[in-house]
Amino acid sequence: MSDAARPSPARETEPKTAIGRFFDSDLWWSFSHSPLVIIAAIVTVVMIFSAVFAPLVAPCNPFDLAQLDLMDSLKPPAWLEGGDPRYIFGTDDQGRDIFSTILYGARISLLVGFLSVILAMLIGVTVGLIAGYTGGLTDTILMRIADVQLTFPAILIALLVDGVMRGLLPPEMHEEVAIYVLVLAIALSSWVQYARTVRSSALVERTKEYVQAAQVIGLPAPLILFRHILPNVMGPVLVIATIQLALAIIIEATLSFLGVGVPPTSPSLGTLIRIGNDYLFSGEWWITVFPGLALIILVLAVNLLGDWLRDALNPKLR
């Protein structure tokens, strides 16, 4: 037999291209068989797209002063009495279209969410890999640092980073860097999750024989870490990243609501909720409710995706 290498019978018909293999995979199968997850995915994709392309999607630019008309301020949603069909969700005190501000706000929220998740992932995965693979004293020190990190809540870190930045940078830069301060603060408070997960996976992987085979070939440790161990620990990392994205958006909203987040000149969903909060008791509920709903839907959809991904990648958990 020269053509040899027969796969097991069940896989004989398996498609050969990467795309074909994806649509044949268990992951796709479990995705296409759970309606709730499909809805969550569609919602997430629609929200991300409309946020990214907000300038194209939104009916008006709420931050372009030339477009604002104070005569339009505090209009209720379109379907209520006194509503204006141009403003579906009504307007705020300055005549800004709530729908548009949500799109622009979601943009900031998602930007902060994604950036902080990426930063936390970079820190956490690196620390976890090194701790898990090296072991010994390095492992102990890195993990104790992680434990200490866990004792600080995100808000405290945000206030700390914010305070330090304010002290270091000239006042005119505060608003520009506010977003990055926020990203740094959220990342610093969430990298431990990644580090712990990656460390425990790396501890398991490093004892496997393929790692020993790489050592016998003579590969140096960094190459073994990144070429062999990293791809094998990424599964759980992706799950955490998805769930952490939802969490990061919430933390951002919380911080912005409390006033230590992004400035009102480029409001995120959290800032919008805070601004609207002032009008809640004077009857203009729509200013705060719609951004709130948008936040809930976004976080819920992302969370559902994360839960599904966790179950799909680890069938034993079900």
């Binding site: 496997k208 024989e209 393929y210 020993q212 085979a213 790489a214 016998v216 003579g218 791809p231 094998n232």
Partner: peptide, 18 residues
């Protein structure tokens, strides 16, 4: 070490699945 190689016991874990 290049002149020295090793074959492992467990064929399921000795190859990187990725």
């Amino acid at each position: 070490r290049r002149q020295m190689q090793m074959i492992f016991q467990d064929p399921y874990s000795s190859l990187n699945p990725r």
